[in-house]
Design a protein around this nucleic acid. Structure first.
Length: 893
RNA sequence: GGGCGGUUAGCUCAGCUGGUUAGAGCACCUCGUUUACACCGAGGGGGUCGGGGGUUCGAGUCCCUCACCGCCCACCA
């Protein structure tokens, strides 16, 4: 009787057609939606996912995020935990407007020509298109999100959460409106936060300008001046003082006097302030409080006037006299030219400086004095900091806790207002008397909270919130907060928050602060941060560099699972990785390997099927033991969020243990013509059972491939899959006992097989040739081991006949040895020169190691101080090596 | 100017609380059409763990120091 070679799987895994169909099956089975009621006694596992930007094309960062989260979610779902992974999209205020403005420009429209209402209508059309695309793309990745709970940061639920959250901050005195210097992007025409103001090192110029001193009549003294150094000459119209270092003797006599501002003739007090570096420039600084963060502080300390000189497009305003209306850089050139003509441009020098640019559009950001909405986050930050310090929230990898703490300790008030249209409008109303009413009601306040004027006389704030304000409410606003909904009670607080370390401050910190303030509990137990996916040269991927790998194209080519393996393997949390073609190929090869293993297993079914019978053979017991160890290890690694470790564990088990050794040994059993049909059936049963457990282990890493194999496996071997038609809903395998004796036996046999193969290679024997092998077992136990493994030794080392009773024979000098005994190849190969050399090298190696261990064990410091198990291990090892040497006819020195 | 991370095989990276002879994948060399897989199999070569000190019976792992590389934060115009 022969086994059928007919496989029920096609020769190749066709990802592009197979994967979407599988995702459809998952959706049809409602596999990602938690049961109406949590399973009794189940632990909760909820992931807080960063909702992708509505504007963004899917990139590898999204893919990595989705893969990491999906692995965890699938694992916990299989564990039977009450698992939720909620999908969402972020409205991305400034980013979305940036994109839409560009689209509008192509249509010859602008924000201004449309007006707020039509602009927002247009935005919704745009959003509704892209939102679906984002969802489809995540499905292609295999992300097992609960689509029935899809949320959007601009939906009604979010809107209500935003209003309530802000009202609470206002009532607590933490939200306020006030005048302050903020970062202004003249292109986006809005305030931006410190985090969105990206600092760049750039080459600039440092100009030295003479400010003439005022004479007795308050007129510029042509012969006396103070020279100030500046990188921004156009801001002189906002100057209200000149400052020097208090103890700078060069200027001691000038402090208290006045200088005259060029062009405008304004009298500027010369003041002393420690902010000034006496060694920089001329040691004298022009002070422009309304356009520089340092000067602003100086201005406040000295009670200086603050004069705004720029409009919202960064053009000079009426304060600039003849220069009014010019763009800031045109004005700079013009001012310099005039100063030169007047002879007051004393010098210019190249200067390396730091310039802030808008994260979104790259425009140079201007500090601008304006009335803004702020949140005082200091008290919130302290609570968030305490949560991390006291371990109620932990950050993985742990060193980011320091980064987090440093930022939290130095946090400034959060300017939450944006002068944009796309976003949640700040729920504040002004009455004609200047009173402010903050309301969380959907239709606004009924009357002014202070004077009772009716709503009809109130006007709402036009500013909207920073996008991150609504994102900061994400973990609970998506579950129904502020209502105590069943979902909120069941799924909040969440367990793992996973995202790129880049948005630790932007998002994680805000969620922590707002979550603690609003819900009195840490919104998640663990923050898992992943790194950036870079190109093979370590460069960040960007469209302008043209080094972007499109995940969707890659998936078309090699499959989503292959990409997942490539991105997750060998990547520690918080560490950037380089994605190379070799890594992608490696992922593809692994999926292919598993596919082919499945083809073999399915094709190896005995026909006709008999009743399984007899005790399990050595390979069967061994693979069960290895499987048990693997399950235990993989489970531990997943629980510890060690995804790369988990991937390596299952990869090694699947490829090395299962395919390279178990299946090869199982073939011996499955193809034994002398074996009773019942025994063959039993081997196949073991093969399918262990393979099914392997698929369970692989499922989080290879969701599509493992699922594609599961169904045909279940058809052929229902006992293996437990009748569960979908792997996604199957249970995570339970670890049986590890059998140390079997492990050791097979280890020794494998070692012997490898040694024989090595000798064959050294002797230059044709790979297909069968050679006689003589073996002299080291003892009775070893003889038994070899007898038990003889069939596998013969097949895998390709030796026949096998002579297990060769003690008495004369050993050729090419004999090798291992723990089982001494062995040598028969026939001509035995005397081969290369084999002898190799054997001699092996003996030399053994002697060296024996000598090393004897020295170590002869050292009393070691035997006395090292732990007993360590010493014992060394002793056993020495004994083993000595035995091997002795078997080769040496006394070991 | 602060702070953080990195430096391990030709390349990309793992190495938990210090404990055998430091691992993996890729690349490289040799061999192979054994009916799952050449996107494969078998065998092999290759590392003074960035330098220097120290603690220890024992250090890739802990401490100090130096050198490069990278990142984050920051108010010298």
């Amino acid at each position: 009787m022969t086994t059928t070679a007919r496989s029920q799987l096609p020769p190749r895994y066709e990802a592009a057609s197979v994967e979407p169909a599988i995702y459809e099956r998952w959706l049809a089975a409602n596999a990602f939606t938690p049961a109406p009621e949590p399973p009794p006694g189940a632990k909760r596992f909820v992931i807080t996912q960063p909702p992708p930007n509505i504007t963004g094309a899917l990139h590898l960062g999204h893919a990595l995020t989705a893969f990491v989260e999906d692995i965890l979610v699938r694992y916990h779902r299989m564990r039977g935990d009450d698992t939720l992974w909620l999908p969402g999209v972020d409205h991305a205020g400034i980013a979305a407007q940036f994109v839409l403005d560009r689209l509008l420009a192509e249509e010859g429209e602008t924000r201004a020509t449309l007006g707020r209402e039509r602009y927002l209508e247009r935005m919704w059309l745009f959003i509704n298109e892209t939102r679906d695309i984002i969802g489809q793309q995540h499905q292609r990745l295999g992300a097992s999100l609960d689509w029935s709970r899809l949320r959007f940061t601009m939906d009604e639920g979010s809107a209500r959460a935003v209003r309530v959250a802000f009202k609470r901050l206002w009532d607590a005195g933490l939200a306020y409106r006030g005048e302050a210097l903020v970062n202004w992007c003249p292109r986006c025409r809005t305030t931006i936060s410190d985090l969105e103001n990206i600092k760049h090192d750039e080459a600039g110029t440092l100009w030295t300008i003479r400010y003439h001193l005022a004479d007795a009549d308050g007129r510029p003294d042509p012969d006396r001046w103070i020279s100030v150094a500046t990188t921004r000459p156009e801001t002189i119209f906002g100057d209200t003082a000149v400052a020097v270092y208090p103890e700078d003797e060069r200027y001691a006599d000038l402090v208290g006097r006045e200088a005259i501002l060029p062009f405008l003739g304004r009298r500027l007090p010369i003041i002393a302030d420690e902010h000034v570096e006496r060694d920089f420039g001329t040691g004298a600084v022009k002070i422009t409080p309304a356009h520089d963060f340092d000067d602003y502080e100086v201005g406040r300390r000295h009670g200086l006037p603050m004069i705004s000189i720029l409009d919202e497009d960064a053009r000079l305003n009426e304060q600039a006299g003849e220069f009014a209306g010019q763009d800031r850089y045109d004005a700079r050139a013009a001012v310099l030219e005039r100063l030169r003509q007047m002879g007051d441009l004393e010098g210019e020098a190249p200067h390396q400086m730091v310039i802030g640019r808008c994260d979104r559009c790259g425009t140079v950001v201007e500090p601008r004095l304006s009335v803004q909405w702020f949140v005082n986050v200091k008290p919130l930050a302290e609570r968030a900091l305490a949560s991390v310090r006291e371990g109620r929230t932990r950050i993985v990898p742990i060193h980011f806790e320091k980064v987090f703490a440093h930022w939290m300790e130095n946090i400034h008030d959060w300017a939450v207002g944006r002068q944009l249209w796309w976003g949640h409008r700040i729920p504040a109303w002004y009455c004609p008397d200047g009173h402010i009413t903050v309301s969380d009601a959907a239709d606004g306040p009924g009357a002014c909270a202070e004077c009772g004027r009716p709503a009809t006389e109130l006007t709402q704030e036009t500013d909207i919130f920073d996008t991150w304000f609504s994102s900061g409410l994400w973990p609970f606003s998506t579950l129904g907060w502020p209502e105590q909904t069943p979902d909120l009670q069941r799924f909040y607080p969440t367990q793992v928050m996973e995202t790129a370390y880049e948005i630790l401050f932007f998002w994680v910190a805000r969620m922590m602060m707002l979550g603690l303030f609003l819900t009195d509990v840490e919104p998640f137990e663990t923050v898992y941060l992943h790194g950036i996916v870079r190109d093979p040269y370590g460069q960040k991927m960007s469209k302008t560099k043209g080094n972007v790998v499109d995940p969707l194209e890659m998936i078309e080519e090699i499959g989503a699972d292959a990409l997942r393996v490539a991105l997750v393997s060998g990547n520690a949390p918080g560490v950037d990785q380089r994605l190379t073609p070799a890594k992608l190929t490696g992922g593809r090869n692994f999926t292919n390997k598993m596919w082919n293993a499945a083809r073999f297993v399915l094709g190896a079914a005995p026909e006709p099927m008999a009743q399984p019978d007899g005790d399990e053979s050595l390979p069967e017991r061994w693979i069960r033991s290895r499987l048990a160890a693997t399950i235990e290890r993989a489970t531990r690694q997943l629980d510890a969020l060690d995804l790369a470790g988990y991937a390596a564990t299952v990869h090694e088990f699947a490829w090395s243990d299962y395919c390279d050794w178990y299946l090869e040994m199982a073939k011996v059993e499955l193809r034994r013509d002398d074996a009773p049909a019942g025994e063959r059936a039993r081997v196949w049963r073991t093969t399918t059972e262990t393979f099914a457990d392997l698929l369970r282990l692989l499922h989080p890493l290879l969701p599509f491939v493992s699922e594609a194999i599961w169904e045909p496996l279940g058809n052929a071997a229902p006992w293996a899959t437990g009748g569960e038609p979908l792997l996604v809903r199957a249970a995570w395998p339970a670890a049986a006992a590890v059998d140390g004796d079997v492990d050791r036996t097979v280890d020794q046999l494998r070692d012997l097989i490898r040694a024989v193969r090595d000798q064959r290679t050294a002797a230059g024997v044709a790979a297909g040739a069968w050679l006689p092998l003589h073996v002299a077992p080291a003892g009775a136990a070893e003889r038994e081991t070899m007898a038990g493994g003889a069939r596998y030794l013969e097949a895998l080392a390709r030796v026949r006949p096998l002579d297990l009773a060769a003690e008495g024979s004369a050993r050729p000098s090419s004999a090798g040895s291992n723990a089982l005994g001494t062995f040598w190849l028969g026939s001509d190969a035995a005397s081969d020169q290369a084999a002898e050399e190799r054997a001699a090298a092996r003996r030399a190696e053994l002697r060296e190691q024996v000598a090393r261990l004897r020295t170590l064990l002869g050292n009393e410091a070691f035997t006395n101080r090292a732990p007993a198990p360590v010493v014992e291990r060394e002793r056993a090892r020495l004994a083993d090596l000595e035995a091997q040497l002795a078997a080769l006819g040496e006394d070991g020195g």
